[in-house]
Amino acid sequence: MKAARSEILANVRSALNKKDIEIPSAVDERLRAHAINTVPARVSGADADRIAIFIEEAERASATIERIKAPKELAGAVTAYLKSIDEEQAVRAAGHPLLKECLAEQTILEVTEGPSDGTDTVALTAAFAGIAETGTLVLCAGSESPTTLNFLPDTNIVLLPEVSIVGTYEDAWAALRQTMGSGVMPRTVNWITGPSRSADIEQTLLMGAHGPRRLHIILLADS
């Protein structure tokens, strides 16, 4: 294996006509600076209405969206949504502090916490951020956000505080660096834009290929 590594790198260097095996400072400078390239003006401008654009784009990607004003409204919103899709009033929830706060006093929903083993039908999670540019949710793996919840249950309900909606992909990375430090990543970062789909049979677009059939986003105004 050592041999393969040095052989490949030697081939690369010889193709590049490089005699030096030192890593040029320009490379490390670029990694350190992680400069932003072109970003869409529509969401990066100071006066961009990021919440409105997020909603428009998430709906374009076939997510459904509703807005609540206060944490205590979450249980009612989830209940009404589950009723509308004929699901039982039970969710497998991420152990996220915001979700705990929202659900502290509710009694309607049956809530269990933890990752999914594939038997749960509804997931309730909280997103790290929303990206207005394409209506994309950002979920970071960790004790407060098991990855399996994003993929195994048929219905995925995601709580997103409106203050966590950023304009661009780059804004989302900046927010993550602020939380975790530069160069550090959660084990998994999931960007999710609408429910799972496939057009592999006769180019017919169908929702619910392997992941969730439905993605319902609840925007929280005040958190």
Binding site: E57, T136, G142, M185, T188, V189, W191, G194, S196
Partner: peptide, 14 residues
């Protein structure tokens, strides 16, 4: 505009 899932993986389970 973007695929439904874009997934960034960094190392094994923590």
């Amino acid at each position: 505009d973007i695929t439904v899932y874009t997934t960034y993986s960094t190392g094994p389970k923590r």
